[in-house]
Computed example of a mutant assay.
Amino acid sequence: MITHPQAAPAVPDPDEERRRVQTARLLAYRDDGPLVAVLRGRMGPGLPPVPAALAALLAVVAVGVTGVLGDGSGPAALLPVLAMVVLVVPTAPRDHLGRFDWLVPPLIRGTEFLTIILLGLAADTPKWLLFVLIYVIGYHTYDTVYRTRQSIWPAPWVFQAGLGWEVRLLLLGAGAALGVLDWVVAVMCVYLGVLFAVESVTSWVRLDKQASPAQASDDLEASPEEAMEQATGEADKA
């Protein structure tokens, strides 16, 4: 009987694995949505992430300083949104492995929040409503960062259902241009708040239930002496 030697399973290169995880984390922290998902494979190599994100931030600041938004309605309301979308969306195809590419997610989030504030203040949107929207998006960002640091990755559909920074800003810009920004912000607060809260809670509860049997199995495998020692230690602490 002739047997063929079986190839040993390939061991992933540690450096390649580190780069893969770093890219995945930074792309998750960007919080790109459905528009980026559609265009990512059609934009070639893309723009350098850090210079483009910095340019978008400066463009939004310039719009706010010059006062071109006026009362926050009309086509001018789309200026900061389009500046960010045009400059930052083409950076999505990059691998984000540059020395300073870790700056891209905070630059995107900061520019998104600044755009929301500028549009809201120009349109005289209630400040508490703007705060709620920023809080909801900030919670989603915190939850994503905390999960990935625990090697727990949010499902890809969460980012699509959450609309991503680019679709959120396009909807807000359109709402401001049409004079209905208050309603758009209110609906977005409710929708995103329910989506992110329910998905986050159910995911953590599911993870806790999956971890409980493993913990119980570890406890059963412990020797009687170890179990007694652990119980004695816990009693002494109490």
Score class of each variant (00 low, 15 high):
A216V: 11
P14T: 04
G70R: 10
F100E: 13
P156T: 03
E229P: 05
D182P: 06
D13N: 12
L163I: 12
E166S: 13
T125S: 05
A211L: 09
D95W: 14
P154R: 07
Q230C: 14
L58G: 13
S200Q: 09
P90M: 05
C189T: 07
T148H: 05
H96K: 12
T148D: 06
A211Y: 04
A122Q: 00
V65D: 07
V201F: 15
E229S: 15
T23F: 10
E17D: 05
P48L: 06
A214P: 09
V68Y: 03
D208I: 03
G64P: 00
L103R: 05
G64Q: 00
D13W: 10
E229G: 14
V85A: 06
V11I: 12
L130F: 07
M188P: 05
E166Q: 09
G179D: 07
A227P: 02
V85G: 03
R18Q: 14
V201G: 10
Y29W: 08
V65F: 08
L195F: 10
L47E: 07
W165C: 04
S200Y: 02
P224E: 02
S203Y: 08
L57R: 09
T23A: 08
L39S: 02
V61D: 01
G72F: 12
V85W: 02
A10F: 06
G120Y: 07
E16N: 03
L54K: 12
M1D: 04
W157H: 08
V65C: 04
A83F: 02
E112R: 03
V187H: 15
F196K: 07
G64A: 01
Y146W: 11
V85M: 11
